[in-house]
Simulated assay, not measured.
Amino acid sequence: MYQRFIAVGRLGRDPEITTTAGGARMASFSLATSEVAKGEERAEWHRCVVWDEKLVDVIARRARKGTLVALEGQVRTRRWNSKDGRENHTTEVVLDRFTSRFQILSGAKPQDDVVEANQPVFDKRFAFDELPF
């Protein structure tokens, strides 16, 4: 079985760039998506984690709170035990090196500062202007 998560939304905060003990860089951020139902807008929040080094570089340089992005990744649930013995879990959208895509749609720096990282997420046939946010 295979699953994909594809979303267009805005970053809810500036991305957090960290380095693991093993030296790998990663980015994490919250992504807000929304839909309008019965005249009311409903927002959904997604925690996103990026492990692709090239994407981390692009995110560090160009993504800020409010940036409109399109992304594709996998939904994964991570489990761990806290110091007091309780089992914790969190569900994240994970973008890794081979199976993920990320594209900044607006709110980015000028075009001359673009770094190519992966191909565009969506086919140009889709009209992003019709999205409710």
Rank of each mutant, 00 (worst) to 15 (best):
A32E: 00
A32G: 02
A32P: 00
T33S: 10
S34L: 10
S34R: 03
V36K: 10
V36T: 14
A37T: 10
A37D: 11
G39A: 02
E40R: 12
E41I: 10
A43R: 13
H46P: 12
R47L: 07
V49I: 12
V50C: 01
W51G: 00
D52P: 01
K54P: 06
K54V: 08
K54D: 09
K54E: 11
K54L: 11
L55K: 13
D57W: 05
R61E: 14
R61M: 08
A63E: 01
R64W: 09
K65R: 14
T67E: 03
L68V: 10
L68M: 13
A70N: 06
E72C: 12
G73R: 00
R76D: 03
R76Y: 04
R76W: 09
R78D: 13
R78F: 13
R79N: 13
N81W: 08
N81D: 10
S82G: 13
K83P: 15
D84L: 03
D84P: 09
E87L: 15
N88D: 08
N88E: 10
T90F: 06
T90W: 07
T91F: 03
E92I: 00
V93Y: 00
V94P: 03
L95E: 02
D96Q: 06
D96T: 09
S100W: 07
R101F: 05
R101N: 03
R101T: 01
Q103G: 07
I104G: 03
L105V: 07
L105G: 02
S106E: 15
S106T: 12
S106L: 09
A108K: 06
K109P: 15
K109Y: 07
P110Y: 02
Q111C: 05
Q111F: 13
D112V: 08
V115L: 12
E116V: 15
E116A: 08
V121K: 00
